[in-house]
């Protein structure tokens, strides 16, 4: 009987750990960012995720005035979509909304509270201390295009603005299906060939 109780007790104790969150951490490679592109009809959307090292050259918590300025300047730049993508004029794409944030990467599930919004980047520090020491910039924008079929290539001035960025892994989806590509610094162009 005591043994059974013990087993029952052990099971009860074990139960919370069994359903506890797993530890997981996203891959993080300096020099390599990801760019997701999606198009549906006239709407074109992108999200860029780039390591802090690629954008501002450091990933520690911005404590010095200089670092804070650098982060603020980077977010300012990334929230202008033309810093990242240059779309052909013929497509007639106008950005409708654009945001950029700095995210501390931790092994906790990423939630809104863990993101550092553009206008509240003074509160970084306590978030970043919990982080695994890496940060990521996320930039997101939505365009409406009057003639999206005319998009045959996308230039990436992103590489010109951020000299530490080496490559971007691109994933693109549209009603025509999905495709992948790797764009490197030496050739900062994404050829679409009617695939998007």
């Amino acid at each position: 009987m005591p043994l059974r109780l013990l087993i029952a007790g052990a099971l009860i104790c074990a139960a919370p750990t069994a359903i506890a969150q797993q530890r997981q951490l996203d891959a993080h490679e300096h020099g390599a960012g990801t760019l997701d592109l999606a198009r549906s009809g006239n709407i074109l959307e992108f999200e860029l995720r780039a390591p802090g090292a690629d954008i501002v050259g450091f990933e520690h918590a911005a404590t010095s005035e200089e670092d804070k300025m650098a982060v603020a300047a980077a977010i300012e730049m990334l929230s202008k979509p033309e810093t990242i993508l240059a779309l052909s004029d013929a497509a007639g794409c106008e950005p409708q909304e654009a945001t950029a944030i700095l995210v501390a990467m931790s092994d906790e599930h990423e939630d809104e509270a863990g993101m550092l919004e553009h206008d509240e980047h003074d509160e970084h520090d306590d978030h970043e201390e919990a982080a695994a020491g890496h940060t990521e910039f996320h930039a997101h924008a939505i365009y409406t295009c009057s003639n999206p079929e005319a998009l045959d290539r996308i230039d990436l001035p992103y590489f010109g603005h951020f000299p530490n960025a080496r490559e971007l892994e691109v994933q693109a989806v549209s009603d025509k299906g999905g495709f992948g590509a790797e764009v490197v610094r030496d050739q900062p162009v994404l050829q679409l060939d009617g695939k998007l």
């Binding site: 797993q22 997981q24 997701d36 009603d175």
Partner: peptide, 29 residues
Amino acid sequence: PLQVFKLQRAINEYPEEPLMAVIPGVALQ
């Protein structure tokens, strides 16, 4: 198509089980 990446992230970051989602065209590439 605009939902694809949101769903892909939700699956890749699904906390209860280590799962992943791939876009067939990207994996082929």
